[in-house]
Nucleic acid binder design. Sequence first.
DNA 1: CGCTTTTGACCGGCGC
DNA 2: GCGCCGGTCAAAAGCG
Length: 474
Amino acid sequence: MEASYKDDSNYNVAAVTCFTPMMSFNGKRLVVDEMDFLAEKKESAVDDHEVVHQMELHVDVGKLLNTGLDLLTKSSARNIMSTMEEGPSEENKLAMLAELNHVSAENQRLRNMVDQVNDKYNALYNHLMKLKEKEHNNEINGAIEEKVEKDDMITRPFLDIGVAKKEETWQQYSKGKQQESKSMIDLMECKTRKICNGRDGAKSTRDKHESPDDKAIPGFSNDVMKLSSFVDAEQTSETMSMIKKARVSVRATTDSPMISDGCQWRKYGQKMAKGNPCPRAYYRCSMGTACPVRKQVQRCAEDQSVLITTYEGQHNHILPPTAKTMACTTSAAASMLLSGSMPSSDALIHSNILQSATLPFSQNQATLSTAAPFPTITLDLTENATNNTSQLSQGPPHEFMPAPNILNLTKISGLQYGSQGTNPTSFIDTVNAATAALTADPKFSAALMAAVTSIIGSSHPNNINGGSGDPTLK
DNA sequence: CGCTTTTGACCGGCGC
DNA sequence: GCGCCGGTCAAAAGCG
């Protein structure tokens, strides 16, 4: 296992992608490359079912992200060989060799799967390039569109980056879908390369097209930005400005004036907001110097037992473990906000969230709010949103431990989540299946979301915490 | 004394 | 241009 995974900022990703591989051997479990930072995970009793589940999860995540399974299996092999060198019996040697062969075969099989996915991706990418070229020619010859209305400008960059036509034909929309599908796949492939080549591995040639300014964006990671790598600079600029303003709002029923998210906050203002008898308090993170993360706390006008906390920005400092949960959750939500804004990725993500059978509130529909100046995702953790919140929440009273898989995504302000039909590729089907399997388990879905976000955020040197509060975001 | 909170002033965006 | 409103600043007050 890579030592870099021990980086505190990547605790969550490590917790998911590096679940201790276990193999049965002569009726005994072999624990391969167990890491100290998994101690927290091991605190809870691990029964056989969980072991199997962890293993399955690991494979799923590996498929999903095309991660370092190879490393893991090689690592497993190394341990087996190491054990053999210690002088086991002849019978054990044979069994170990058999196990080794089995692992190698599995490794080969997974590699083949990855190759197939890459082949499909390449074919799709080529097709996309042709369509894009055709589209570009049409744009040059076509009439110049009138200036897009303001509301449209708010939602457009998130609706279909790259196709800035107000009257959009289905074909154009379909092209956008394919483009975003490619972007999403591209993102995953980048992650794959990064993981397989090491954290400091060579970046793809497309990565080199990134503007250095991307590094200055506090709220989201570079890799998220890559999703819009094919848009022209102007649209990118607009999109980036929206991304910077992306917010994650958390609704929670609590009597305390502020939810405990593990961070230290300094209050810098309080205002009476229109339409709400309760004042709105403004806080900024005081854990790090010049940390850009801010949050607003206000009680709901309709139900004052509900506390609405809105996070903005991403921490630029190391977070304590108690703060990581919230930070990663909001960061994941912000990432979902961003990725979900893209036509294909709403199929990827929201089909899992809104259609997953594990979610009792799948009937909830994200709504468009043109009143919201910034794209905001609302995570509803109130009792009204879900009845199983209490049974899943852990920790001491007032310890805010959201379980993202049960988050009630009721509002995506500034975005339009439509019921547009999608034509998911087989790859996306695979990802959907894997993700659905993961979201079925409340224990891991939270970690998964944080992990994916952490992976996305890990490429940014400043993204040492993997999320904000936030948006936070990244 | 140092840090946090309070609170009125200020600023910029937006709609009319 | 004006007023409204959300967000921020900064001096004063409070607190340990």
